[in-house]
Design a protein around this nucleic acid. Structure first.
Length: 292
DNA sequence: ACCCAGGCGGGCG
DNA sequence: CGCCCGCATGGG
């Protein structure tokens, strides 16, 4: 068991982060569980208590020990993030204060970089439901089993590098099949994802944007959700719309200006601000409807 | 039927 | 640089 404060498992997983795409979730009045497969095995987590003060019960399979499973969970769900201090850093205006109080306990998760990269390449010009279907199909068609009971883990880059375009497209990727195969080739050859985290944010972002199908937004998603770089501020249609609506009286702003604004407003914690804006914006339905 | 979805690449001025 | 366009696919 892990004691946790300022953590809401359901909110964290369901707020459009990579785990929402291909983990098995069960949330309701009784169940409050998530299970997911990593390169080392399978992890299941259940939250009890409240988001202000609760606990996580967990179980594990594969190569995990109690200690390594525990470390994986703390790392995965950002339980090492100092949320009170992050809140005081980003809650500098009434609008963010409201988002923060409404979404209390939402944390930025840390996910496998390749998995994150692929998920967000798939995400472009797409919707969450289809992203989920496609990434799940990646696992069922290309995934490697760990043992007989724990299911399959997300396939590595070499699997896609060696796959035919049509078999990739058969997972529902559409036109992104070419991006996926090229990125997979790069990442299984000369592009070292495991090393990227040691570069400063701006350099790492420029390197990622050299990959096919990776632009400003996808690069920021990979840095935020894959490398835990909290200064990354992914600007998708929702964040753009929400920032414009809340902070610029609804007037159209170029991406460049929104990046500048986010830096000035929330500094190195703007990645957290982004996730709260994103989910707050969707929940309150700025100019659109919710889909998943 | 029509519209849109956690954007990006390429081609233009 | 900024702007504009096309893009596969399935669900609302």
């Amino acid at each position: 068991m892990i004691r946790v404060a300022d953590f809401d498992l359901q909110l964290t997983v369901m707020s459009g982060q990579p785990l929402a795409f291909h983990s098995d979730c069960s949330f309701g009045n009784v169940q409050n569980t998530v299970s997911y497969v990593t390169s080392s095995g399978v992890i299941s987590v259940k939250q009890t208590g409240t988001s202000l003060s609760g606990a996580l019960e967990y179980s594990y399979g594969g190569e995990y020990t109690d200690g390594s499973a525990r470390a994986e969970i703390i790392r995965r769900f950002g339980l090492d993030h100092d949320l009170p201090s992050i809140y005081s850093r980003i809650g500098t205006d009434d609008l963010m204060k409201e988002a923060v109080s409404q979404l209390h306990g939402l944390r930025i998760t840390r996910n496998d970089p390749w998995e994150t990269l692929l998920c967000f390449i798939v995400s472009q010009f797409n919707n969450i439901k289809r992203i989920r279907n496609t990434t799940r199909m990646f696992i069922s068609r290309f995934g490697e089993g760990i043992d007989t009971t724990s299911g399959k883990r997300f396939p590595g880059p070499e699997r896609f590098a060696n796959a035919s375009l049509s078999s990739i497209r058969a997972c529902g990727t559409g036109f992104r099949d070419v991006y996926i195969k090229k990125a997979a080739k790069a990442c299984s050859m000369d592009f070292d994802l495991s090393e990227l985290g040691s570069y400063p944010y701006a350099e790492a972002k420029a390197m990622l944007m050299g990959l096919p199908g990776v632009g400003d937004k996808v690069a920021d998603c990979v840095l935020l959700f894959g490398y835990g770089k909290l200064e990354a501020f992914p600007i998708d249609t929702w964040v753009k719309k929400t920032v414009e609506s809340l902070y610029f009286k609804g007037s159209n702003m170029p991406i460049r200006k929104i990046h500048e604004f986010a830096y000035e407003q929330w500094g190195d914690m703007r990645g957290y601000a982004q996730q709260y804006l994103f989910w707050h914006g969707r929940e309150s339905g700025f100019g659109g409807r919710l889909d998943a």
